[in-house]
């Protein structure tokens, strides 16, 4: 793919470095240690954190933010632990994902992954209850992912019917798990998301 220099955004690297966790981006010297040790690259060969970093440094904003591979990172921190330049790749990738999410919310981009929906649904449970509520999470995530409530519930049953029964039989998913947890200080959690979050 030829790179058209007149389409580059020279400020993109500063945008990433201005995000919490993105600060060390420019230290990368492209050794590829991150990519060689990545357990995801082994399974998804197109996933190449070195390349995402180089494209970011070059200012290929659109290509980076719309790359579906951004969303297969596990945040397992192997790249960060091994990087000789302390780029903190897992944190840099996370900073890039947050920029992409904001661009999608602003209507400038369509993210080709369900992960932002899942992360959002998870955060909504925290805002509401202060702790993770599995059932609330599934009830928000699956319909959004599938496009309708009915389709969502069908997909959820397909993924979780066997697992749910297994956990129920072992006493790990009883009536207690059906009820939402309610942290007394949940008003504070709501405030945290409002004051510190990006939404």
């Amino acid at each position: 793919m030829p790179i058209k220099t007149w389409e580059l955004d020279p400020n993109f690297k500063n945008e990433i470095m201005g995000e919490a966790g993105g600060e060390r981006l420019a230290s990368c010297f492209q050794c590829s240690t991150c990519t060689l040790g990545c357990p995801i690259t082994e399974i998804v060969p197109s996933y190449n954190p070195r390349k995402i970093i180089q494209m970011s440094l070059l200012g290929m904003r659109k290509e980076v933010l719309s790359n579906p591979d951004l969303w297969v990172c596990l945040i397992c921190q192997t790249c960060t632990a091994r990087c000789p330049q302390d780029v903190r790749i897992a944190d840099v990738l996370s900073a890039i994902r947050r920029i992409a999410e904001r661009e999608e919310e602003a209507g400038n981009l369509k993210i080709d992954s369900h992960r932002p929906l899942f992360d959002k649904a998870f955060q909504h449970q925290l805002e509401k209850y202060g702790r993770l509520y599995d059932i609330g999470l599934a009830k928000e995530y699956y319909p959004k992912k599938e496009g309708s409530f009915i389709k969502g519930m069908k997909a959820m049953m397909k993924d979780y019917k066997d697992f749910g029964m297994r956990m129920f039989k072992k006493g790990k998913m009883g009536p207690k798990a059906m009820l939402a947890p309610k942290v007394k200080g949940r008003a504070v959690i709501k405030k945290i998301f409002k004051e510190m979050g990006e939404e």
Partner: peptide, 16 residues
Amino acid sequence: EDWNCCGAAEVEDPRV
């Protein structure tokens, strides 16, 4: 007492 979720892997903003 009354602990809240740590943010797990799903809250990506370190400040939160």
